[in-house]
Amino acid sequence: MNETPSDSLATFDTDEAKWAAVLARDPAADDAFVYAVRTTGIYCRPTCPSRRPRRENAEFHADAAAAERAGYRPCQRCRPQEPSLTQRHARSVARACRLIEESQDLPSLDELAQVAGLSRFHFHRVFKSVTGLTPRAYAVACRAERARRTLTQRETITEAIYEAGFNSSGRFYAGADRMLGMTPGRYREGGKGMEIHFALGECSLGNILVATSEKGICAISLGSDPEQLLQEFQERFANANLLPGGKRFDAWVAKVVAFVEAPGVGCHCRWIFVVPPFSSASGRR
């Protein structure tokens, strides 16, 4: 692919783009830079509700530390030296995700909200806006990820199913195609007899590999080294026929990348697959 959805995301790499974001009070700019006003000696977030300065009196800095090194002091209204609302929400959701990942059963909404430090209704909205999933959907995806891992580590499928947190084998088998892109037996056998199409792309978190069988998505992986991603994928499905995806497949990869870049928008696909746990993603979501 020559282009990913990240290419179309708002960027603030010029002073003109930054000034436009300040005028628009663009929330997407809040963690990208701060602006300082020469006539007042104060620096602010792009979303600060204060009156906009004249353009000739504004200058831009990478962050609060850079603005303070230049001699500016923080605004008392928007407090740009403190974590932004987006950052605070991301940290709260990360704590909740960590609890979900470590629990065999889904913690209650009240328990998750308490860990996040938010009310239960506010927490549910924030969680979905940050991750693109409800807490329950995230828990289901984490359980599915445990199943994929245990299927290759345990002696029997039944043992793997129950260790992953499924209460019945029937429930697991009913959703196996969606979770694995194939039957559990085929997954354990490295995709034996399956034809799997795959493609590599890029996103803000690094390189991404997406693979599908005729049953559905069977792999989504993120990493900094595309060769390592490809090697791990080939080892996981050593007995399958692995084929590069075509143009139609590239569109699927673009949807996955778009979801990674802006999870709050959601992914309107017929499958749900979570990439490495949210709480482990460096500074993301």
Rank of each mutant, 00 (worst) to 15 (best):
M1A: 10
T4H: 10
S8W: 11
T11V: 12
D13F: 05
D13I: 07
D13M: 04
T14I: 10
W19S: 04
R25Q: 13
P27N: 08
D31N: 14
A32N: 08
V34E: 06
T40M: 03
C44Y: 10
C44G: 01
P46I: 07
P53N: 08
E59M: 10
A62Y: 07
D63E: 09
A64Y: 05
A67R: 03
G71K: 01
Y72Q: 06
C75D: 04
Q76K: 12
R79L: 14
E82L: 15
A90P: 00
A94N: 05
A94I: 00
A96K: 03
C97N: 11
I100M: 14
E101I: 00
E102L: 12
S103R: 06
Q104C: 06
Q104R: 15
Q104H: 05
P107G: 05
E111D: 15
L112E: 03
L112C: 09
V115T: 14
V115Y: 02
A116N: 10
L118N: 03
F121P: 00
F121T: 14
F123K: 03
H124R: 12
H124M: 08
S129T: 11
G132T: 01
P135C: 05
A137G: 09
C142K: 09
E145Y: 01
A147W: 04
R149H: 13
R149V: 09
Q153P: 00
I157N: 02
T158E: 15
A160L: 07
I161Y: 11
A164F: 06
F166K: 07
Y173N: 11
A174V: 00
T183R: 12
T183N: 08
P184C: 06
G190D: 08
G190E: 06
H197T: 13
H197E: 15
A199S: 12
A199D: 08
G201A: 14
E202A: 10
L209C: 04
A211Q: 02
S213K: 04
S213E: 01
S213I: 03
I217A: 10
G223D: 03
D225H: 08
P226N: 04
L229R: 05
Q231W: 09
E235L: 11
F237I: 05
A240F: 00
N241W: 02
N241H: 13
L242M: 08
L243H: 12
L243V: 15
R248N: 13
R248Y: 06
F259M: 07
F259I: 03
A262F: 01
C267V: 08
R270W: 11
W271K: 01
I272L: 14
F273E: 10
P276E: 11
G283K: 09
